[in-house]
Structures are given as C-alpha cells and as structure tokens.
C-alpha cells in the first residue's frame, strides 16, 4: 500500500478527533476509527513502515492511537 497516502489518511483522521476536548477519548476514537474502517493490510503497512522509518510524519494523536492498536 502507498504509505504516503496512508499517512495522509491517518493524519486527517487525527485532525478531526484532535479538536475534541477529551484527549484520551479522542485518541481512543482515532484507534477505533482505524480499527473499524481500515482493512488489516492497510493497518499493517502503516505500522511496518513506522517500525523502519520512525513516526515523525504522524500527528502525536495518531501515534498514540496506533500504539493502542498494536502495542510495541
């Protein structure tokens, strides 16, 4: 999967939930959204990429959410 695109999509999801007042809840919502709507190979591609390239390209809220989905 085109990782650049996945990063953009993940960050856009992060942007929506970032505006929510409760940060913990918002992080959970990002995780839930990705879990509910992303086919496993999309999730895996993104996580694999981050494992090798680091995750600076991601918004912090998305980073936290991914850790929730796949604890390192």
């Amino acid at each position: 999967m085109n990782v650049e695109n996945l990063i953009k999509m993940a960050n856009d999801i992060g942007t929506f939930f970032e505006a929510m007042p409760n940060r913990e809840q918002a992080t959970r919502d990002v995780a839930t959204h990705i879990r509910k709507f992303w086919e496993p190979r999309m999730q895996k591609s993104l996580i694999a990429y981050l494992g090798t390239h680091g995750d600076e390209t991601l918004k912090p809220i998305v980073r936290d959410a991914l850790r929730e989905i796949h604890p390192a």
Binding site: M1, N2, F37, E39, R41, M42
Partner: peptide
C-alpha cells in the same frame, strides 16, 4: 471480523500487487 477494502483501497492494493 475485520473490515475489507474500500474501492480506493482496492486500487491501492492492486498497485501493490495484493
């Protein structure tokens, strides 16, 4: 129990060979 690919994701996966 996992969601499948949406149309644009299908295109991406096709480009990826999967």
């Amino acid at each position: 129990k996992e969601p499948g690919l949406r149309i644009p994701n299908m295109f991406e996966a096709a480009m990826d060979g999967t």
